[in-house]
Design a binder for these strands. Structure first.
Lengths: 211, 211
DNA sequence: ATAAATAAGTTAACGATTTCACATAGGGTG
DNA sequence: CACCCTATGTGAAATCGTTAACTTATTTAT
């Protein structure tokens, strides 16, 4: 079992969770590192190492119980706790996040959105109220928020991050296409869609290689 | 200079490009690996190593010319060529991609969208026509397409990938929350939004650590 | 012009991650 | 119930990525 968990392992954890969910839905009750590896394009060794960072969830000679392992990994990922979320920016990306079904299913509850455009403020997106950005501090004083989603233009992102920090928010899921400065005790995870597309472009330009 | 470029380097390339763009916009004409490293939270060594995978773009005693280096990296990323793109699924994510401004600015031209819902088919999203999924093969026979964006429900993703492959599309930008099976000569880059959010959740659950 | 300072290119050491190999424990079967 | 088979857990080896140290080229200042 483990003291320090590497970045590489953390990146893979959601993949394990996703595959285990799919296996469970397909009625598979147990799986070996061999089979899971084939499915995920990882070596059996790596899967055993990864899982052993957190404890021996398998049984020798048998494999892993799918639902049990999924439960453990869900716990490790912090998915057992419900997260209160707000979305900054009710544009295309903000809406897409607000309406993303998997999102609320996994315990991420969007309790408010914020925008500046007059025809959006005061409306509802599904059952989520849209407030004016000016009301942000007032809202945060009244409601505990675990995660803020930044889905607004890049030029407002840094200021908004600071306002969120000053009101006590300590975790940001950032869609603005820029790397934000942030205090050490604030977590920022970037999505950077264009980066991912440019990686595809790179591989297209340099193909010859499979996989 | 370099034969094989590692995954780690490819992942960082778009970040270089983004920062160089910002520096250029800010009127900075030259930069050292030291300064760029501070800005990007990378060591100067790593930056020099990364850039040297592709050739000596800097000048000793001076640093790198921002616009020149940006040009080289843009070239390496394949951004000088215009890419013809179609989007499968005109839901929230499909729309968000279609309307993402950075997208077309960087040479990714969305020439069509496809959906099955009757009230979307036949309309236009901005100036992009929305066709019925049934017309996909006909469209692909008539128009060269470099990249297909999968922005449809997971249950349709695998079949659609196969149809795209059979019609000659060889690169996929996948937003469906699942890992797709694909032939070796097809490139698939996944976005997996929920993975990224779950990584945030993990770090929230295990904080104590800064950065 | 020459020397000093700067910063890239490059090689080598270091550290992290992945893979391999093996010992061990659990389950199935006769 | 005892055997065999399977597949985990684990420590060591190998690979891969990052950082540090050094060498060399370029610029600036005297």
């Amino acid at each position: 079992m483990a003291g320090h968990v590497s970045d590489a392992v953390i990146r893979r954890l959601p993949g394990y969770y996703r595959h285990l969910r799919e296996l469970e839905a397909a009625g598979v009750t147990s799986i070996s590192s061999q089979e899971l590896g084939e499915r995920m394009h990882l070596t059996p060794s790596q899967i055993r190492q990864d899982i052993n960072c957190f404890g021996g969830f398998g049984r020798q000679g048998y494999g892993y119980k799918v639902s049990e392992l999924k439960g453990h990994i869900g716990e490790i990922l912090g998915l057992t706790k419900e997260h209160q979320v707000i979305i900054l920016g009710a544009g295309n990306i903000g809406c897409a996040v607000a309406r993303y079904p998997t999102f609320s299913r996994e315990g991420f509850k969007t309790i408010a959105m914020f925008d500046v455009t007059e025809d959006k403020v005061g409306t509802r997106m599904g059952d989520i109220p849209v407030y004016h950005m000016d009301e942000l501090e007032k809202f945060l004083a009244a409601h505990p928020v675990d995660i803020a989603v930044l889905a607004l233009p890049k030029r407002y992102a840094q200021d908004t991050l600071q306002r969120l920090y000053d009101s006590g928010v300590r975790a940001i899921w950032n869609f603005a296409p820029t790397d934000l400065q942030h205090p050490d005790d604030m977590l920022v995870v970037n999505v950077h869609l264009m980066d991912s597309l440019q990686q595809l472009s790179y591989r297209m330009a340099h193909r010859e290689n499979a996989e």
